[in-house]
Design a protein around this nucleic acid. Structure first.
Lengths: 263, 263
DNA sequence: ACCTGAACACCGTTCAAGT
DNA sequence: ACCTGAACACCGTTCAAGT
C-alpha cells in the first residue's frame, strides 16, 4: 500500500476553516469537523474498493493517519459511520434541490426539476446514495448515536419542509386544488414515497428482471407524472411535454454535472 | 437461560415431511428444509429480543442445538441468514396477495385489496417485514450466497407477474386504458414503487416528524388512490368510496388476521 | 483536553477429526 | 454424507497511560 494517499491535509483547508469560523465554531471544533469530512471521504473510498461489506472501522483506521481511539471519537460504531455518509448524502441532495428550484417554469415543472435532481444524485454519487438506503435498515439505525440520529432527523425535516413548499406554491398559484381530505402533507409525503421507492428499487434491483425490462432514464419521470396527474396538478401530462421539461432541466441547470458523469 | 426452548422438534413435523415429500425432496433434503425453517424462526426470536444489531450466527448457534459448522452449512454468513428471513417474508406476502385476490369487486378494488394485504403483513410481522428492507441494503446483498440470491430473484419475479396480472385484467375488463408510451410493466412497477416507498418510509421513519404528522392507516390507501387516479383507472376515487373497500377487505378477507393483532 | 495503541471480548469462518 | 467444535483471524470497543 502506498502511504502517499494517507493524511491528505491542506488544499482548501484554510478556506474551509474560515467558512466554518463564520458559523461560530471554535478552532478545535473546526478541526474535528474537517477531520470528519476527511474520514467520510476515506470511508467512501474503502466502499468503492471493497464494497459496503468491506467497510470496517479497523480498515478506516488503517487508511487514515489517526488511531482507533480517535476514530471512535468520531463514530460510535461502523453503523454510525454509515449514517454519517447518509447525512453527507442528504445534505448534498438538499443543495441540488435548491439549485433545481431556479428552473424557470410552472410549479409542476419545478417539482419535475427537483425529482431530476434526486435521480441525478443517485447517478453522480451511487455509493453515497446507497448509504441513504443502508441507513434506513433497522440494524444500522439501532447502532447510530443519538446525536447523529438527531442530525438525520433535522435534515429529514428540512427535506420535508422543502417538499411542502413545492406543493404550497402550487396551491397558491392555482395549478393544484386540494381535494377534500387531502392536505399539503399528504401530497408531499406521497411525492417523497414515490421518488424514494422508484430510486431504491431502480438502483438495488437493477440486476433483477423486474426493473431490467424498463428504461431507467424515463422510469422516474413516468412514475411521478402518473402521481401528479392523479393529484390533478396542472398542466396535466397529456397537455404538457414533461419529457421535454426533463431534458430542459438537464440542459439548463445540471449540464456541468452531467458532463462530469461521462468523463 | 432456560434450555427448554432449545431444539423444539416435533409438532407438525410429520405433516411437513409429507407435504415436502410430495414436491419431490429426499428425506435428508426434507430434514435440511425443516431445520432451516426452525433456524429462521430462532433468528426472528433473537431479533425480537435483541434487535437486528443483536443478531449473530454465534448467538443463533447457541440458541439452537446445532454446531457452528451446521449453521454455516445453512447460512454462508449472518447477512445470508437475514436474506433467508427476507425470502420467508416475500413468500408469506405472496400467499396473502393470493388470498386478497378472492375479494369480490372491480379490478381496481382487487388492487386495493392486494395493497391492504401488503400493509397488513407489515403490521403482522414487523420483524420479517423489516428484514425485506434490510436485505435491500448493498452490504447485505454483497454477502448473500448466490444460490439464495437466485431464490430471491425467483420470488421477486413471481411478485412482478402477480402485479402485472392485476393490470392485465384491468385492461381486459376495460376499466383501464393504456395510454401511449405506457406499458403494463410501467404501471405495475409504479404501483410496486409506491407501495414499497410508502411502507418503508412509514415503518422506518415512524418516529420522525415526517410521517408522524399523518395517519398511518389511511396513508397507503391515499397514496395508491392518487396513483391509480393518475392512471385513469376506473372507477376513479371521486366516484367510488375506496375507504369503504379498504374496510370491506379487512372485514371480509382478513378478519381473523386482524384479530390476532389485538390479542 | 485530546490522542494513542494495547488489551480483550465477541464474532466470523474454516477444516481436520469424528460419527 | 453429514456433523462437530477447536482454532484462528479480524473486528469492535474500551481505557489507562501519554502528550
Amino acid at each position: 500500500m502506498s502511504f502517499d494517499s494517507r493524511c491528505p491535509h491542506g488544499g482548501f483547508k484554510g478556506l474551509l476553516d474560515k467558512s466554518l469560523a463564520r458559523i461560530g465554531l471554535s478552532k478545535s471544533e473546526q478541526k474535528k469537523v474537517n477531520r470528519e469530512e476527511e474520514l467520510v471521504d476515506l470511508a467512501v473510498v474503502i466502499i468503492n474498493e471493497q464494497g459496503f461489506a468491506g467497510l470496517s472501522l479497523e480498515k478506516l483506521t488503517a487508511k487514515s493517519c489517526y488511531s482507533k481511539g480517535t476514530i471512535y471519537n468520531h463514530f460510535s460504531s461502523k453503523e454510525d459511520c454509515l449514517s454519517a455518509l447518509c447525512i453527507r448524502a442528504i445534505s448534498s441532495i438538499l443543495d441540488l434541490f435548491k439549485r433545481a428550484l431556479i428552473f424557470d417554469g410552472s410549479s409542476r415543472e419545478k417539482a419535475v426539476a427537483v425529482h431530476y435532481a434526486y435521480q441525478l444524485y443517485a447517478r453522480l454519487q451511487p455509493t453515497l446514495f446507497m448509504a441513504v438506503l443502508s441507513s434506513k435498515a433497522p440494524g444500522v439505525r439501532e447502532k447510530t448515536s443519538i446525536e447523529r440520529m438527531g442530525v438525520m432527523d433535522k435534515f429529514e425535516f428540512e427535506i420535508n419542509n422543502f417538499s411542502d413548499a413545492l406543493f404550497r406554491n402550487a396551491v397558491a398559484d392555482g395549478s393544484l386544488i386540494l381535494a377534500e381530505h387531502m392536505s399539503i402533507e399528504t401530497l408531499s409525503f406521497s411525492n417523497w414515497a414515490m421518488s424514494f421507492g422508484t430510486n431504491v428499487l431502480a438502483t438495488s434491483a437493477k440486476e433483477a428482471t423486474a426493473v431490467n425490462r424498463l428504461d431507467p432514464n424515463t422510469l422516474l419521470l413516468q412514475n411521478i407524472n402518473l402521481l401528479h396527474d392523479g393529484m390533478n396538478w396542472h398542466p396535466l401530462s397529456k397537455d404538457w411535454d414533461y419529457q421535454n421539461t426533463w431534458r430542459r432541466v438537464e440542459r439548463e441547470i445540471f449540464a456541468e454535472d452531467i458532463q462530469s458523469l461521462s468523463i
